[in-house]
Simulated scan of single mutants.
Amino acid sequence: MSTQAHYKRPGRVEVNTFHRLVRFLVRHGVSLWGARVLSVRGRKSGELRSNPVNLLTLDGAEYLVAPRGHTEWVRNLRVAGEGELRVGKRVDRFTAVELPDADKVPVLRAYLKRWGWEVGMFFDGLDAKSPDEELLAAAAKFPVFRVALT
């Protein structure tokens, strides 16, 4: 499997329980450790598609990391270049730029430090203490977008 095709599909229990719970809480204004509901236009349908995500703030910039790899929301965001992040009634529109692999290491490390307990299973043994070389070697598997709120 190429790194470009890297994708770990969520299990039924996760989608039916965890995602729904996080989505419900975030829609009602409760953000768990930076959780947001991401909405992006579908690249084929043109309809808004929504997923719970973790918004990382690092050195004054904000990032979206795709721990499951090259998911549908990633593919849609690449095409759309913009979307919305929601918490309760608050809606933040944004534009996004995908980072090159060489720039992902500090973002991946910070993401794993903050949410490794939640997403570590998708990182194939990597964690916040992994050497830079190992994070760089895996960077192509994990899309990262710098988000600019508009």
Score class of each variant (00 low, 15 high):
residue 1 M to V: 15
residue 2 S to H: 13
residue 3 T to L: 15
residue 3 T to C: 13
residue 4 Q to T: 12
residue 7 Y to L: 08
residue 8 K to Q: 12
residue 10 P to W: 09
residue 11 G to V: 01
residue 11 G to S: 02
residue 13 V to N: 06
residue 14 E to N: 06
residue 14 E to W: 10
residue 16 N to K: 08
residue 16 N to I: 08
residue 16 N to G: 14
residue 18 F to P: 00
residue 18 F to M: 10
residue 18 F to Q: 04
residue 18 F to W: 09
residue 19 H to I: 10
residue 21 L to E: 07
residue 22 V to N: 07
residue 22 V to G: 02
residue 22 V to P: 00
residue 22 V to S: 05
residue 23 R to P: 00
residue 24 F to C: 06
residue 24 F to A: 10
residue 25 L to C: 08
residue 25 L to S: 07
residue 25 L to V: 01
residue 25 L to Y: 08
residue 26 V to D: 04
residue 26 V to S: 01
residue 26 V to Y: 03
residue 28 H to A: 13
residue 31 S to Q: 09
residue 32 L to Q: 04
residue 35 A to F: 02
residue 35 A to M: 03
residue 36 R to F: 03
residue 37 V to Q: 05
residue 37 V to R: 03
residue 39 S to D: 04
residue 40 V to D: 00
residue 42 G to V: 02
residue 42 G to I: 01
residue 42 G to T: 03
residue 44 K to S: 14
residue 44 K to W: 04
residue 46 G to K: 06
residue 46 G to P: 03
residue 47 E to F: 09
residue 48 L to W: 15
residue 49 R to H: 06
residue 50 S to Q: 06
residue 51 N to M: 12
residue 52 P to I: 11
residue 54 N to G: 14
residue 55 L to Q: 04
residue 56 L to P: 00
residue 56 L to N: 01
residue 59 D to F: 03
residue 60 G to M: 05
residue 63 Y to T: 00
residue 63 Y to V: 01
residue 64 L to H: 01
residue 64 L to R: 02
residue 65 V to C: 09
residue 65 V to P: 00
residue 66 A to Y: 06
residue 66 A to C: 10
residue 66 A to G: 06
residue 66 A to W: 03
residue 68 R to D: 04
residue 70 H to T: 01
residue 70 H to P: 00
residue 71 T to Y: 12
residue 73 W to Y: 15
residue 74 V to A: 10
residue 74 V to W: 04
residue 75 R to N: 08
residue 76 N to P: 00
residue 78 R to S: 12
residue 78 R to H: 09
residue 79 V to Y: 11
residue 81 G to M: 11
residue 81 G to Q: 10
residue 81 G to L: 14
residue 81 G to V: 05
residue 81 G to T: 03
residue 82 E to A: 15
residue 83 G to F: 04
residue 83 G to T: 00
residue 83 G to V: 00
residue 84 E to S: 08
residue 86 R to I: 01
residue 86 R to N: 11
residue 87 V to C: 13
residue 87 V to G: 04
residue 87 V to W: 11
residue 88 G to M: 13
residue 89 K to A: 13
residue 91 V to A: 02
residue 92 D to S: 13
residue 94 F to Q: 05
residue 94 F to W: 05
residue 95 T to D: 14
residue 96 A to G: 07
residue 96 A to E: 01
residue 96 A to Y: 00
residue 99 L to S: 04
residue 99 L to F: 13
residue 100 P to Q: 15
residue 101 D to T: 07
residue 103 D to C: 04
residue 105 V to N: 03
residue 106 P to M: 10
residue 106 P to Q: 06
residue 108 L to D: 01
residue 108 L to S: 02
residue 108 L to A: 08
residue 109 R to E: 02
residue 110 A to Q: 03
residue 112 L to T: 02
residue 112 L to G: 04
residue 113 K to F: 15
residue 115 W to R: 09
residue 116 G to S: 14
residue 120 G to Q: 09
residue 122 F to Y: 15
residue 123 F to E: 00
residue 124 D to H: 11
residue 126 L to N: 02
residue 126 L to F: 09
residue 128 A to C: 05
residue 128 A to E: 06
residue 130 S to V: 00
residue 131 P to V: 07
residue 131 P to N: 07
residue 132 D to F: 05
residue 134 E to A: 15
residue 137 A to D: 06
residue 141 K to R: 13
residue 143 P to I: 11
residue 145 F to I: 03
residue 146 R to F: 08
residue 148 A to R: 15
